[in-house]
Design a protein around this nucleic acid. Structure first.
Length: 443
RNA sequence: GCCGCGGUAGUAUAGCCUGGACUAGUAUGCGGGCCUGUCAAGCCCGUGACCCGGGUUCAAAUCCCGGCCGCGGCGCCA
């Protein structure tokens, strides 16, 4: 390995490393050339550190190598760490400078302050944009959210699964799918792992989760939709109702909120000046959609017809309501109308126009959808017909329910949306390394 | 899918409404120079742009039409 330590590690251990030789490998973030003395700021994923070269003190070979440096040159610097009046309190007195690569063209985007460029430009040159510490922080945070997800569900007895993304069935929750040529057949990119996570529960794994890509062929033009995103999915058996599913969703959100002071998260929140997610001690409020209609009408003068879904304005208002009345950044909206939910949703026995389902709003944006699934074969068949769908199209799925399907339910959570809402990003594309939208398929 | 707004150097912008002194301004980057403690270093010099096509006009960055691209709102969803 050329590199033995991240810059953050050198800085964290500066006490013991001062006076010793260190090696810093990274990108040239800035060059301040004062003639007989040159300062290089070297950056890696974890931070920046200053290296200094002085004519007469630094070996000529290193001085010569420094002449050809440009911004974003890739370097390894060897030298002695010493105390200095820099932001970090230390600097590297250069003894040798190795230039591993030099940009062959001027930079189309400046790393520092790249977020000031148009998002389109940043995405076009994402490999440069990504070097901006503010951008790096988003993806380190995203990885941390996924880790907390994995940690939490593993601790609750869930098994991680990996389901097919190439599927035969068409639409299952209303979202449009992308067709794919698969040998001599047309198949589709999975718009959710829905059927297969249920399959895994029915197959006896009982509690499962998956972190995987999903594909939506909707021509969105918004700041909160992607055509490809990562879904955090869970599914669990032996539940009494959708309340059990909500408890597990809530458990994850509480875990996120509790662990938010861990290093990568703390730094990201600080970078974006974001408030930690707020969940009251009493838990996330759960409001039936029937009550939400009333709240919207009476408190905000917003009319949503009974039995209709909340529109995005209504979701924003309910988010505001939860914040002001429950001191909560989250709110569950519960028991959605059957008419706006997919066929596999379990209806309430006594009130079949309502379902055992929920959405979770986070700062006024839907980030989770879930509920109890219909596990009784005959009821499932009825529901398919009631939705005007053809049972033959779902034969492979229906078969799962013929040989012992326990009562079960689950939820799907939008990873990028959780990241966006936590950090207060203006556009979900910022939370995706290489977003796919209606026009963008490169890089 | 419907609707709205936009496209000026590598990047980000001013100018457009009210066509002409625009030789298209500014910042930053980039190239060169000066400088031995800078830290978004500074100072000096230089470089570089009106999306494409058509139209109106004596005259178009500016007005009109079409195309392409970008951004956003709604819808749908995570």
């Amino acid at each position: 390995m050329l590199k033995d330590k991240f810059i953050s590690e050198i800085l964290a251990r500066r006490g013991e490393l001062v006076g010793k030789k260190v090696r810093v490998c990274g990108w040239v973030h800035r060059v301040r050339d004062l003639g007989r003395i040159k300062f290089l700021v070297v950056r890696d994923r974890t931070g920046t550190i200053q290296a200094v070269l002085k004519k007469g003190e630094t070996p000529d070979k290193a001085m010569a190598a420094a002449e050809d440096l440009r911004l974003e040159s890739v370097v390894c610097v060897d030298g002695v760490l010493r105390e200095a009046p820099t932001k970090e309190g230390v600097e590297v007195k250069v003894e040798s400078l190795r230039v591993l690569n030099t940009p062959v063209e001027p930079l189309p985007l400046e790393v520092e302050g790249s977020e000031k460029a148009l998002l389109a430009t940043r995405l076009r040159y994402r490999w440069i944009d990504l070097r901006n510490p503010r951008v790096t922080a988003i993806f380190i945070f995203k990885a941390w959210v996924a880790k907390v997800f994995r940690d939490y569900y593993e601790s609750q007895g869930f098994i991680e699964i990996f389901t097919p993304k190439i599927v035969a069935a068409g639409t299952e929750s209303g979202a449009e799918v992308f067709p794919v040529l698969y040998f001599d057949k047309t198949v589709y990119l999975a718009q959710s792992p829905q059927f297969y996570k249920q399959f895994a529960v029915i197959g006896g794994l009982e509690r499962v989760f998956e972190i995987g890509p999903v594909f939506r062929a909707e021509p969105h033009h918004t700041t909160r939709h992607l055509n490809e995103y990562h879904s955090l999915d869970i599914e669990l058996g032996f539940i009494e109702s959708h309340e059990d599913v909500m408890n597990y969703v809530e458990g994850f959100m509480v875990s996120l909120a509790k662990r938010i002071d861990e290093e990568p998260a703390r730094r990201a929140l600080e970078t974006f000046n974001a408030e930690p997610p707020r969940i009251p001690a009493s838990g996330i409020p759960r409001i039936k959609i029937r009550e939400a209609y009333e709240i919207l009408r009476e408190v905000y003068g917003k009319e949503i017809p009974e039995g209709e879904d909340l529109d995005s304005e209504a979701e924003k208002l309910m988010g505001k309501y939860a914040r002001e009345n429950y001191d909560s950044d989250f709110v569950f909206i519960v028991e959605y109308p059957w008419k706006v939910r997919p066929f596999y949703t379990m209806r309430k026995d006594e009130e079949p126009q309502w379902t055992r389902s929920f959405d979770l709003l986070y700062r006024g944006l839907e980030v989770v959808t879930g509920g109890q699934r219909e596990h009784r074969y005959n009821k499932l068949l009825e529901n398919i017909k009631d939705k005007g769908l053809n049972p033959e199209d779902f034969e492979f799925y229906l078969d799962f329910f013929k040989h012992g399907a326990p009562p079960h339910g689950g939820a799907g959570m939008g990873l990028e949306r959780i990241v966006m809402q936590t950090l207060g990003l203006g556009n979900i594309r910022e939370a995706r390394l290489l977003p796919r939208d209606t026009e963008r398929v490169t890089p």
